[in-house]
Design a binder for these strands. Structure first.
Lengths: 187, 187
DNA sequence: TCATTATAACTAATGCCATTAGTTTTTCAA
DNA sequence: TTGAAAAACTAATGGCATTAGTTATAATGA
């Protein structure tokens, strides 16, 4: 009675990610997702265990994509050049994937090792770039937190439209980075 | 049959705000709110026009509270001292009111003048503090965006638990601010 | 090849939620 | 004191996530 349509987890995640990015996270419901996939919503449960689990999958997917973007952008680069490349890649990611970007920051189950690992890969990438500045352990912690704050703060506010007219947006971001870098160097 | 319980908009907003801060935004539903107020959920519609409208009221309430906190904190202060005072007040607000803090950043209807005004009061407050540094118009725009990015980025990441163990959190924040201030001074 | 088994789709049903319609009760002002 | 406006209510609707139970398809192994 029901022809198999060949649904799988990857299709589900990619379709949901596209919805989250183009139409907003809140529009991603199992009902709307099932409609887009030409399937009845209970069928999704053969591949995911529910909406919270789908969100977790999206978050994980986003972390992996973000890591790839950052890694590619910073390949073969070091110091200021690496910092700027990473910052640009980060901002670009948040612009192209506003939905899954926001999902990457959702607090996750502390027992979820896969999520932990995906997050820490990004942290290590940042850490490896900052290593070029020869900071001690404590300074490195502060530097990572500061860098992430700048990246997330700027991306998040821009994405929410909090900056109003998009005048000289790039300049604002680069000046902020410049300030951060000059402070790094003084350490 | 139904004794009037004396519900009003203020009670509704304050109760909802408390739920948002203590139990999370997603737990604020008209059903749960009505239960907490000992009322049936349709009764809420005599005071608000629905859940989206309640969220808007919460956002407005948050913006007003945040403005007050920042204004009080920076009274009679200027330059670095004012910046640090504002930053501390901002971070404190996001810690004490994580729910409504997040709601203050929700994109709002561009025709909603009351929301516009509540947002711009905060912007003007920041602007007035930065005026002490005698920046030109363009530099001021960049400086405001940078300051807001740092404040929001740090607050948001801390609130989401993205910094992991809360080791030397205050230090990280103040170092970041210090970097920002030294950059301001160089302009 | 064919029978068995697992899997992936389905329908039906439940319960929660937001919202609307329509009713009753209370308050308040003329 | 009476009548209108407001604030509560019940009942009903429709959408959603999720579960249970059913059927069809695919995959496996004799």
């Amino acid at each position: 009675m029901s022809p198999r349509v060949g649904l799988n987890l990857e299709m589900i995640i990619k379709t949901a990610a596209e919805m989250a990015d183009k139409e907003g996270i809140e529009t991603v419901t199992l009902a709307s997702l099932a409609r887009k996939l030409n399937v009845r919503s209970p069928s999704l449960f053969n591949h995911i265990s529910g909406l919270p689990n789908l969100k977790r999958e999206l978050s994980l997917y986003g972390l992996k994509l973000l890591y790839e973007s950052l890694a590619v952008a910073t390949e073969e680069k070091e110091k200021d050049e690496a910092i700027i490349a990473m910052a640009n890649a980060y901002l670009l990611f948040s612009r192209e994937h506003p939905g899954i970007y926001e999902l990457t920051l959702r607090a996750h189950d502390p027992n979820d090792q896969e999520m932990d690992q995906a997050s820490s890969r990004i942290l290590h990438l940042i850490s490896s770039i900052l290593a070029d500045y020869h900071l001690n352990d404590e300074e490195t912690i502060h530097a990572i937190r500061g860098f992430r704050s700048i990246l997330h703060g700027y991306s998040s506010l821009e994405q929410k439209g909090a900056f109003g007219m998009p005048v000289k947006l790039e300049d604002s971001f680069h000046l902020l980075l410049e300030g951060y870098i000059s402070f790094l160097r003084k350490k």
